[in-house]
Write a protein that binds this DNA or RNA. Structure first.
Length: 263
DNA sequence: AACTGTGTCAACCGCCTCTAT
DNA sequence: CATAGAGGCGGTTGACACAGT
């Protein structure tokens, strides 16, 4: 038994929305607010699936939406975020005020994807062999490593600013043996350094994978409570992340993309 | 002018995750 | 804890516009 469809498709309008449907949906949401999408069509008197209403509102009718004319800055940010996050369009869109995931996805598929493929093929032909110490489970592709993220409680993260001594690279970074969130002892510094050494090997990508973006959408969206930076002497520099400024912080992390260690 | 190829983008589909019960 | 419903997401499709022949 599969799950029941979100709505009956019989007697429903499909395809492009008419101006009248847009008007009905817009005025209904203005009065009643977003949400309850499944009931919305019935209440608003629309012959549309609830999902369709939601999509129409989010991607087209919402008042704060910017459409078209993606600036150079936005383009660069999309490219960088895509390197970081992969096809996580909603996350990427969250960093670009007024842009929707659908628009960014379309823009990528039609424009940026081709551009970056071109750039890569001209810059990296043939692609350089991966460094021997790079954890590369598949070894089957030269694609940019996409950081897969999974939601876990994370309120602190560490970014190393130094290059530590080489470490054993046969570890599974995706399942750190030390939980960065659980104090190992009374000394935060030790705790965080252990975490870095055991899970990240001081590789920014590994670090992000293991520490920050394991934290997933919810945390990236909501912002970290704070983030700590390791100085030369392993002293901890702390910087607050807030919900409102998370985009800027995430953007600032793109320095890692320019890092030599970035895969 | 007619046809064909290509690009763009709104909308749909199905799966996954979250949340309430 | 298990389950079902609702929302959210990414991949894909198809209609339309435009350029080239």
């Amino acid at each position: 038994m599969g799950r029941s469809p979100c709505c009956s498709k019989v007697g429903m309008n499909r395809g492009a929305w008419t101006a009248m449907e847009d008007k009905i949906l817009t005025s209904y949401i203005k009065v009643h607010g977003e949400g309850k999408w499944r009931n919305l069509p019935k209440r608003a008197g629309l012959k549309r699936c609830g999902k369709s209403c939601r999509l129409r509102w989010l991607n087209y009718l919402r008042p704060d939406i910017k459409r078209g004319n993606i600036s150079r800055d936005e383009e660069e940010l999309i490219v960088r975020l895509h390197k970081l996050l992969g096809n996580r369009w909603s996350l990427i869109a969250g960093r670009l005020p007024g842009r929707t995931d659908n628009e960014i996805k379309n823009y990528w598929n039609t424009t940026l994807g081709k551009k970056t493929t071109k750039t890569h093929s001209s810059e990296n032909s043939p692609p350089p062999p991966p460094p021997p110490n790079e954890p590369n489970p598949s070894n089957s592709t030269t694609k940019t490593q996409v950081i897969r993220t999974k939601a876990t409680k994370c309120t602190k993260a560490l970014v190393p600013l130094i290059h530590p001594p080489p470490a054993d690279h046969d570890q599974d970074y995706s399942s750190p043996s030390i939980d960065p969130l659980e104090p190992q002892d009374d000394h935060d510094d030790d705790h965080h350094q252990n975490f870095l050494q055991e899970t990240c090997n001081y590789e920014p990508a590994n670090f992000l994978n293991a520490a920050i973006f394991n934290n997933e959408d919810a945390k990236v969206d909501s912002g970290f409570d704070n983030i700590m930076w390791l100085g030369q002497d392993h002293s901890l520099l702390q910087e607050c992340w807030t919900t409102d400024s998370c985009a800027d912080h995430l953007d600032s992390l793109t320095f890692l993309l320019d890092s030599e260690e970035w895969p």
